Computed example of a mutant assay.
Amino acid sequence: MHTFVLFSAILAVALCAPVEESYVDFAEDTLGNYKLSYNTKNSSRTEERSQDGKVVGSFTFLDTDGGKHTVNYVAAGEEGFNAEGADLPVAVPEPQDVIQSRSAHLALVEHEKSLNPKSVVEEKPVVVEEVLAKLVIPEIASLPAVAVPEEDADLAAAKKELLSAYAAALETLAAEYKKSA
């Protein structure tokens, strides 16, 4: 009897526990405005687009440890996509030496412009072979010689057969091309 009472009490508590309902709601008009929202056990999202193209929304999710994370965002024209949330990464500040190097470089560029204000930078294509010819490539220590197997009669016959099949395929392709042209 005690087991029945205990089982009934547990069942009553389980039935009275709130149940989280999942849903999806979407509405759109002919002007491109819309409202979206959904809710599941582990995530939810709301988003709204106005007639000017601005999209405002937020989403939440539970991580594997059960922690709740929320991100709010706005996407609008030239302002781009901007998100805010406690869990988003933050920008790392630029090191001082990089800031100083950039400033020195820009000052040098401005100085050169002031010395020669009428100079025009001419863009012209670069010939790769000329650039490669000017490269100074350091010598590399010689590698040990690798023995290359000599070509025997079987290998020579296989090469000859392959090349003749390739030539035949090219002739067939050329003939088909002439027919279609």
Rank of each mutant, 00 (worst) to 15 (best):
M1V: 04
T3Q: 09
F4A: 09
F4M: 06
V5F: 14
F7I: 13
S8A: 14
A9T: 04
L11N: 03
A12M: 10
A12G: 06
V13M: 15
C16N: 12
A17Y: 10
A17T: 10
V19Q: 15
E20W: 06
E20C: 02
E21K: 14
Y23E: 04
V24L: 14
V24C: 02
V24K: 15
D25V: 09
D25K: 12
T30F: 13
T30N: 15
G32L: 05
N33P: 04
Y34V: 07
K35Q: 13
K35D: 09
L36N: 04
L36D: 01
L36E: 05
L36T: 07
Y38G: 02
N39T: 09
N39A: 11
T40M: 01
K41G: 01
S43P: 01
S43N: 12
R45A: 12
T46K: 11
E48I: 12
R49M: 13
S50F: 05
S50L: 10
G53T: 11
G53I: 09
G53W: 13
T64Y: 10
G67L: 04
K68T: 12
H69Y: 08
T70I: 05
V71Q: 04
N72Y: 02
N72Q: 11
Y73Q: 03
V74T: 15
A75P: 00
A75H: 04
G77R: 08
F81E: 05
F81T: 05
N82R: 14
A83N: 07
A83P: 11
A86Q: 12
D87V: 02
L88F: 05
V90I: 03
V92N: 09
V92H: 06
P93Y: 08
P93H: 11
E94W: 03
P95M: 04
P95Y: 04
P95W: 06
D97I: 03
V98G: 00
I99Y: 05
I99V: 15
I99K: 15
Q100S: 07
R102M: 05
L106G: 00
L106H: 11
L108V: 00
V109M: 11
E110Q: 14
E112G: 01
E112F: 06
K113P: 00
L115Y: 07
P117T: 07
K118P: 00
K118C: 00
V120Y: 01
V121W: 08
V121G: 03
E123Q: 13
K124S: 08
K124P: 00
V128W: 06
V128H: 02
V131H: 02
L135G: 05
V136G: 07
I137H: 02
P138C: 08
I140F: 13
I140T: 15
I140Y: 11
A141Q: 14
P144G: 08
A145G: 10
A145T: 10
A147K: 15
A147N: 14
V148F: 03
E150Q: 01
L155W: 01
A156Y: 04
A158T: 04
K159G: 00
L163G: 01
S164M: 08
A165I: 03
A165Y: 02
A165S: 11
A165V: 03
Y166C: 01
A169D: 10
T172G: 13
T172S: 14
T172F: 08
T172W: 05
A174W: 01
Y177H: 09
Y177G: 06
Y177V: 01
K178P: 00
K179S: 12
S180R: 11
